[in-house]
């Protein structure tokens, strides 16, 4: 039903203020189905804040964040939904959600947006496998009859649990951690923890995966593996990815579309090679005013 290229996420006039600080200022952009959209910008530009608004951890000061499941035709009901005051609507297989109205856990549960964190947040004292089962909490909760059937050990629950373990095993194979399945997550090396966090997010069955600097702290080989993993998530599962990343080699190689933020304001938006040559972007990254870009660029050999 989903068609690559349809709009999946639509962020409109998003503004987030912390007291006097405007961390995100009137930001609008779109992410398309099946694509990898990168969100880049210098430190403190407000990228993580955008993620937090999308995933419901922060209530935006202003703005609308729409997300569509299935048929993109349902976007036509966006304004009606906004006026109705509801969090979302479903029409058959399709659904439309207003993420800024949803609490964080419902963004994952109903709107199916999963995320990872800039500073890894695993459950370090639980095993790798347990981490992946916690991610399937809601599905298992239903299967266990909200604990009632589970307590009496009904076979239907056991079947569901076996299926979850299979799914976890699958993902562990994909990220190459199957041999560590029974080890505590806190024992894994940094790169493995990053991949585990992605696998865990995938176990929630998302339509949109938000990754906050997944390549940070990885060595070049790990970084290349990560690129492959992300591409395959996009290609094989048709899952769209929203990516924050400082490593330009990753961004330029895998993303279909790049949005650039600086001091909370969108300064560029387009295909990677367009953005790469945008003087505003270069200026923001070099920290010099626009009109000096050519000079400084020449000096450093751009």
């Amino acid at each position: 039903m989903t068609i690559a290229g349809d709009i999946l996420l639509r962020v409109e006039h998003l503004t987030m203020r912390f007291g006097g600080l405007v961390a995100v200022d009137d930001l609008s952009f779109e992410a398309r189905q099946g694509e990898i959209t990168a969100l880049i910008g210098p430190n403190g530009a407000g990228k993580t804040t955008v993620f937090n608004c999308i995933t419901g951890f922060y209530k935006p000061s202003e703005g609308r964040i729409g997300l569509c499941h299935g048929d993109a035709a349902i976007w036509s009901e966006l304004d009606a939904l906004t006026d109705s005051g509801k969090r979302g609507i479903t029409r058959g297989d399709s659904g439309l959600y207003l993420l800024e109205r949803m609490p964080d856990y419902l963004v994952t549960q109903n709107a199916r947006v999963a995320r990872t964190f800039q500073n890894i947040r695993l459950f370090p004292g639980m095993t790798v496998l347990e981490n992946l089962l916690v991610a399937q909490h809601n599905a298992l909760m239903v299967a266990s009859g909200y604990t009632l059937f589970g307590i009496f050990g009904l076979p239907s629950y056991h079947r569901a649990e076996r299926a979850s373990v299979e799914k976890a095993r699958d993902w562990l194979n994909r990220v190459g951690l199957i041999h560590r399945a029974d080890d505590p997550a806190g024992d894994l090396p940094y790169g493995d923890q990053r991949r585990l966090e992605i696998a865990r997010a995938m176990c929630t069955d998302p339509v949109l995966l938000c990754l906050d600097e997944p390549a940070a702290g990885l060595n070049p080989r790990e970084s290349a593996q990560l690129n492959e993993l992300l591409m395959s998530i996009g290609n094989e599962h048709g899952i769209s990815i929203l990516l924050i990343e400082h490593d330009m080699s990753v961004v330029m190689e895998i993303s279909d579309h790049v949005v650039v933020l600086d001091y909370g304001i969108k300064i560029s938006d387009g295909a990677p090679d367009v953005v790469r040559n945008d003087p505003k972007v270069i200026a923001a990254y070099l920290g010099v005013p626009d009109h000096e870009v050519e000079k400084v660029g020449a000096e450093i050999g751009l």
Binding site: T108, A114, F117, H137, S144, G150, I151
Partner: peptide, 29 residues
């Protein structure tokens, strides 16, 4: 013992470890 092996029990332990991560996984804390 039974609850620990059920999703609620695992969610309790996950909650003890990291509440924010729990919420990001769709758990109603």
């Amino acid at each position: 013992v039974r609850l620990r092996r059920l999703p609620v029990g695992r969610a309790w332990e996950a909650l003890r470890e990291d509440e924010i991560a729990c919420r990001s996984l769709g758990i109603n804390t």
